[in-house]
């Protein structure tokens, strides 16, 4: 942390002598320890998943949804500061609505990301604001098919076959790279997303979590962003737990020994 004590990291929009914007880097730190989120782009759709850390058993189960809808055909999942994520989503909704009111058709995904990237970038430019403390994974289907993007606190966004953010992102990325993302069906991708979130949770084992899963697919959801139906969610969780047991049987047993 060469940044500390230099004074160049105390305000947003300040460059350090070697050309870095430390406040943006610190914003990324808010993401790095948050619950893992991921998105997968399949042949005909998108799957979004997140590991929702349960901080109290008094929380109402299966409420407090984390994955949100920007427009009928666009979903978002984010890791980091949750209120910042809501701010980001609200902006996305405004952009989608303003596009529709002007052009009378749903916004295209690259166009939406263009606008959102622009907005997030603006929060790195002024000392009167701070950057967004989130990595947002945005997926949707438009006339050109499915698109998946990830927006970072700097305002940069890239298109992905699959993206992951949050604490377990390294594990998740390694697993996502093993998938054949050019042929996988959206239904299978849902199960893989569940498995990978369960696996990534190993990095955060001391905390309980809830899995949240949404999908968009021409075939399965008529191009609309929906939470996966209960039966498929249960199937995916079962698959995730079974795969977890198979994969890490040696790991988990050694864990138990250590615990004892």
């Amino acid at each position: 942390m060469t940044s500390i004590g230099t004074g160049y990291d105390l305000s947003n929009s300040i460059f350090s002598p070697d050309g870095r914007n430390f406040q943006v880097e610190y914003a990324s730190k808010a993401v790095e320890n948050a619950g893992t989120s991921l998105g997968i782009r399949t042949k005909d759709g998108i799957v979004l998943a997140t590991e929702k850390i349960i901080t109290s058993k008094l929380l109402v189960p299966n409420k407090n949804k984390r994955i949100q809808t920007i427009d009928r055909h666009v979903g978002v999942v984010y890791s980091g500061l949750i209120p910042d994520g809501r701010h980001f989503v609200n902006r996305g909704r405004d952009e989608a609505e303003s596009f529709r009111s002007l052009y009378k058709e749903p916004i295209g995904i690259p166009g939406l990301l263009d606008r959102l990237g622009y907005y997030v970038q603006a929060y790195t430019c002024y000392n009167s604001v701070r950057p967004f403390g989130i990595n947002a994974i945005v997926g949707g289907i438009d006339d050109d098919g499915p698109h998946l993007y990830m927006v970072e606190p700097s305002g940069v966004y890239w298109g992905y076959y699959a993206a992951a953010a949050g604490k377990g992102r390294q594990t998740a990325k390694a697993e996502l790279e093993k998938l054949d993302l050019t042929t996988i069906s959206t239904r299978d991708a849902v199960k893989e997303a569940a498995r990978i979130i369960y696996l990534a949770h190993e990095d955060n084992k001391d905390k309980e979590f809830e899995l949240e899963l949404t999908w968009i697919s021409k075939e399965e959801t008529n191009g609309l962003h929906k939470f996966v139906p209960k039966d498929l969610l249960e199937e995916a969780i079962k698959y995730a737990e079974e795969e977890g047991d198979d994969d890490g049987s040696s790991d988990s047993s050694s864990d138990e020994e250590m615990d004892d």
Binding site: K29, A30, S128, R130
Partner: peptide, 20 residues
């Protein structure tokens, strides 16, 4: 250690990504 540095306003992240 960081007292009086990162906690003066809500628009500053601390090096660990917190907003004091």
């Amino acid at each position: 250690t960081f007292r009086n540095n990162y906690d003066n306003d809500a628009t500053t992240f601390s090096p660990t990504g917190r907003i004091f």
